Simulated assay, not measured.
Amino acid sequence: MNYAIVNIKGNQFKLIENKYVYVPHISVKSGNKIMLNQVVMFSKKGIPFLGNPFLENISVQIEVLQHIIKGKKIIIFKKKRRKGYKVKNGFRPIFSKIKVISFLEKK
């Protein structure tokens, strides 16, 4: 089983071929295919290849399937004691659903 650990918007995700992953919103139209070049680690037939910080000769091709998938609500609560100051805010982050098409190795 081949897999890659890829950096997407500051977060690292384990990507496996033909699997779906929810990642932070990617500003590409749904249905488009893009290449990810920030591959931190790649495993082929159980042999790991580590980058320093990224692997130069490996990239991952993905397809953006869907946008505007909202996550769980995140609550932001600020308070200063003995001052009567309280602020409660919250938001729901937007995710994109992607599918890994293939891993490409440059030689």
Rank of each mutant, 00 (worst) to 15 (best):
F77T: 02
G31M: 01
G71N: 06
Y3C: 00
Q38M: 04
K33G: 02
V60L: 12
P24M: 09
E56D: 11
Y85S: 11
I101Q: 12
K14A: 13
N11Q: 12
L55I: 15
S102I: 04
M1Y: 08
I75A: 09
I58H: 00
K45R: 14
I75R: 02
L55F: 04
G51C: 02
R81V: 01
I101M: 09
V64F: 02
V6K: 00
K72M: 07
N89K: 15
I75W: 03
K9E: 08
F91K: 09
S27N: 15
N18A: 15
I8A: 03
P93C: 12
H25Q: 09
L36R: 02
I76W: 01
K79W: 04
K45D: 15
I75M: 06
G90V: 10
M41W: 00
I26N: 03
S102N: 14
Q66N: 08
V60F: 06
Q66R: 11
K45W: 08
V87N: 13
I34F: 00
N11K: 15
V64L: 14
K45I: 03
G71Q: 09
F91Q: 02
E63F: 01
F49L: 06
I69H: 11
S43A: 13
Y3K: 11
E56K: 13
K70S: 13
I69F: 09
E105S: 11
P48M: 12
V21C: 08
G51R: 10
K88Q: 15
N32A: 15
K80W: 08
F54N: 13
V100P: 09
K33V: 14
N52R: 05
Y85E: 09
Q12E: 10
F95E: 04
